[in-house]
Structure formats: C-alpha cells, structure tokens
C-alpha cells in the first residue's frame, strides 16, 4: 500500500507543478495589466503599490508613460500655445496660474489606473467585434471546407486522393512571413479586399492543411456502412452529409477549433499588414494602443488580458466538448 500511495502522491505533485507552471504566464500577465508602466521594468509577483501623482513629475513624461494626451490636457487647462514637455506640474500651475488641485484632478485617473480605461476608451469593443467576426467565420468556414474535403478523400481509395492530401499538407511548411508581400498584392490589388476583414478570413482558410488533416483522419474512422445504409434507405449523398456526417463532426471540430482559434484570434501580422486602424482586430489594436512614440505597458497588458478573456472562455467550452465526445467514442460498440 505504501508504495502505491507514494507513487500516487508523487504523480499528483508532479502534475500539479506542471499545471502551475503552465498557469504562471497567465498570472504574470494579469499582474502586469495592473502594474504602472513606470514600474514595468521589474518583475512583479503581486500588484505593486501605486505611487501618488507627484507635482514634481514632468508633463512630457506623464504623456509618455500614461498616454496623457497633451493637447487634451492643454485644452482642459485652457493653456494656449506651446506647452513645454519638460515642465513639472508644479511649474505649470505656477506659470499658467492654475489651481494645483485642478491639475491633480485631471491627471489623477491616468496615474491611478489607466490600463483597461485606455483600452476600452480607444475602441476595444469595435476591435473585439472585428476579431469575433474574423475568428468565427474562419473557424466555421475552415471546418466546413475540411469536412467536405475529408469526406471526399476519406479512405484514399484513389491514387490522386493521396496526392491532393499531401499537397494540402505542404501548405503548412510555407513560412507566412515569406509570402506576405505577394499575398498583400493579390489581396489588395486583384481581389480588391483592401482593409477588409474578408481578407483575413480568406488567409485563414486558404489551404486548410490542418482542417483537412483533422477531418480526413476522423472521417476515415466513420464506418462506410453508414453511408451505404443511407444509400439503401433511399438517401442521396447530401442527406448523408447533412444528417449523418455533419452531426458526427463534434469531436474533430473541437480539436480543430481549439487549435486554430487562438491562431486566428491572435493573428497580429496579417491584421497589421492588411487592415487599417479603423478595422483593426484585437492584436493589432492592442499593439497600436501603446502609442507611436510612447509605450504604455499597462494599457498593452490590459489589452492582452482583455482580449484573452473571450477566447479563454470559448476555449474552455470546446475543451469540455472535446473531452466529452472523446469519452463517448472511447467505449467500443
């Protein structure tokens, strides 16, 4: 008994450690989202204490670190003309005859916490919707294409089936970076899909190596008698596809979706290249929110955290479906 329980304990310890290890990045990310940029050069394991707004800080630094829009600040404080970024807040108050508290009240929210605040106020929702549209359409259309290809190829009864399959898989080894320019030219110049979410969807479903692989191998395990039975029952091929094959695709769909969804969701490169800011998907939006000459890490990490939340939920749902259908199929019979 002793031996077995030691073994079990060891197993549990190792598994938990591994589990924790995989969760650490999420934790760090969450902490980062609440860490002021000014402290972001250190590794924090807990949300650090926030420093109060000091009247000794320079307005330029504030706009760099906290995304304070200097022009909006000037307007709010009714300062006309050029505002020297080197000026400290106390100097501004003095020089322009503004109540220090007025300045403090205006700037406090930025310093207090500005991550999620900045993200949400700058178009997070719009980008979220764009991302949902792109990811959803890519996964659904990709899966449908994969199922269709898979049902045509399953079993590899003809020589050319294997050829088609292999050529699909080859698509996987092309580095996306290398073809991004010709892709861009084709999409914008010849397809007229400039700044269109459609272009991202097209790129995601092109080739479909993974969907072909997943669905073909799963469909190959569906007994051919099902198809024959439908034929004998008087069904056409589309009946088989619609009534029998499609409902059986839960498991491979869960596999396919849980692998590709994060790719599609987090696709930064293509979004940056093919879209303009008014159409940005989340990764591009988050990347752009840092500012051109400034880097607001608090906002960036908040953006990453926020953009991960929906996908995390969907991901967990699919994992559940995946596990359930895997168990259902595991029992023979």
């Amino acid at each position: 008994m002793g031996k077995a329980s030691t073994k079990n304990t060891l197993l549990i310890v190792v598994l938990s450690a591994y589990c924790l290890l995989t969760l650490v990045p999420f934790y760090i990310l969450a902490v980062r989202a609440f860490t002021p940029t000014i402290q972001s050069t250190e590794l924090h394991l807990w949300i650090p204490e926030r420093r109060d707004l000091s009247m000794n800080s320079r307005i330029g630094d504030l706009s760099t670190i906290y995304n304070v829009d200097a022009r909006a600040f000037r307007n709010a404080m009714e300062i006309k003309g050029y505002l020297n970024p080197q000026l400290k807040l106390s100097q501004i108050a003095e020089q322009y005859g503004i109540e220090p508290d007025r300045i403090r009240d205006y700037l406090e929210p930025y310093v207090q916490y500005n991550g999620i605040y900045t993200i949400v106020n700058n178009g997070f929702v719009r980008s979220l919707i764009a991302t949902i549209v792109v990811t959803g359409a890519s996964v659904l259309v990709g899966a449908l294409l994969g199922i269709m290809t898979g049902s045509a190829l399953a079993g590899f009864r003809r020589r050319w089936h294997m050829f088609v399959y292999n050529s699909y898989l080859l698509n996987m080894i092309i580095p996306p970076m290398m073809v991004i320019l010709p892709q861009y030219i084709i999409i914008t110049r010849y397809l007229g899909l400039e700044n269109s979410l459609m272009s991202l969807i097209l790129l995601h479903i092109k080739g479909g190596a993974l969907s072909t692989m997943v669905f073909t191998s799963y469909i190959a395990t569906v007994p051919r008698e099902l198809k024959e039975s439908v034929a004998m029952d008087g069904g056409k091929h589309y009946h088989y596809f619609l009534y029998i094959l499609l409902p059986l695709m839960g498991t491979p769909f869960a596999v396919f979706a849980s692998i590709t969804m994060p790719w599609f969701w987090n696709d930064l490169l293509h979004a940056l290249v093919l879209l303009r800011p008014d159409n940005y998907t989340l990764p591009a939006f988050v990347a752009s929110i840092g500012g051109t000459f400034t880097t607001n890490f608090e906002a960036i990490f908040s953006g990453v955290l926020l953009s991960l939340a929906p996908i995390l939920v969907v991901y967990l749902v699919f994992q559940k479906l995946f596990i359930r259908s895997a168990m259902a199929g595991a029992v023979k019979g």
Binding site: P223, E225, S229, A231, M232, D233, G234, I244, P247, L248
Partner: peptide, 19 residues
Amino acid sequence: DPSRRGCAMVFQNYALYPH
C-alpha cells in the same frame, strides 16, 4: 439504384446512426 431494388440490409456492425 440500391434504394430502388426493394432490398433492405442489416450490416454486421449494424450501421446505426450513432447520434
């Protein structure tokens, strides 16, 4: 066509529609 031959088949693995 198979469905018009007036035959019905019972397969070895029954081929029931699983879902």
